[in-house]
Amino acid sequence: MSFFTSANLDIAREIVSRYPAPRSALIPLLHLAQEQHGWVTGDAMRQIADLCGVTPAEVKGTGSFYEMFKFHPVGSYLINVCTNISCMLLGGEELLDHARQRLGVKTGGTTDDGMFTLEDVECIAACTEAPCLQVNYRYRLRVTNDDFDEMIDDIQAGRVDDLPRHGTLARVRQRIPADRLAGILPPDKAREAPVWLQRNNAAEDSVVG
């Protein structure tokens, strides 16, 4: 019933090992599942539940709280148009309208060819560059209708590099070399004061003495 590929299962185990409690890996593992499959399947949630020591209902309960996790197939390119206040002031809603027309979908819809899913999103922290959007969480700024069309044309024509399929977020992963790891323990096994805090006393002694 393994959902994760064996390479990803290794990554998953490593992610679990970075947290004092396995459950903390739940959200990172949902991202990993989405990276592997484009969206989060039932099998993925069952395996994540096992890896994190929780029930599948807890995985779904946590996962469905967060917008970025999709529990149904979505397009290879997820286009998020910001319509929050700063973008709205400078044409975000009009841009979204245009996007709907160009792609022929409603907000939240996916094109028939499975290529694009269109969403309107809340502020994506590029407010000074309004109106803006993200494609698979990569920014396009101060977007005009023409820019939008050109962007779609480029993607459709395969003229994109550097834009991973939906699901892949960061292409660089943190890795911690074993010999550099300070050591991660469950809280109940880490009750000792960190050694370097002893310097407080040592220095005091030397000041006094």
Partner: peptide, 22 residues
């Protein structure tokens, strides 16, 4: 200790539910 029902979704769409088929 049988966490088989849970809140799902968020905000005004929040609902109690089980995991599908469980």
């Amino acid at each position: 200790g049988d966490v088989l029902i849970h809140f799902m979704d968020r905000g005004s769409s929040t609902q109690v539910n089980t995991f599908p088929d469980e």
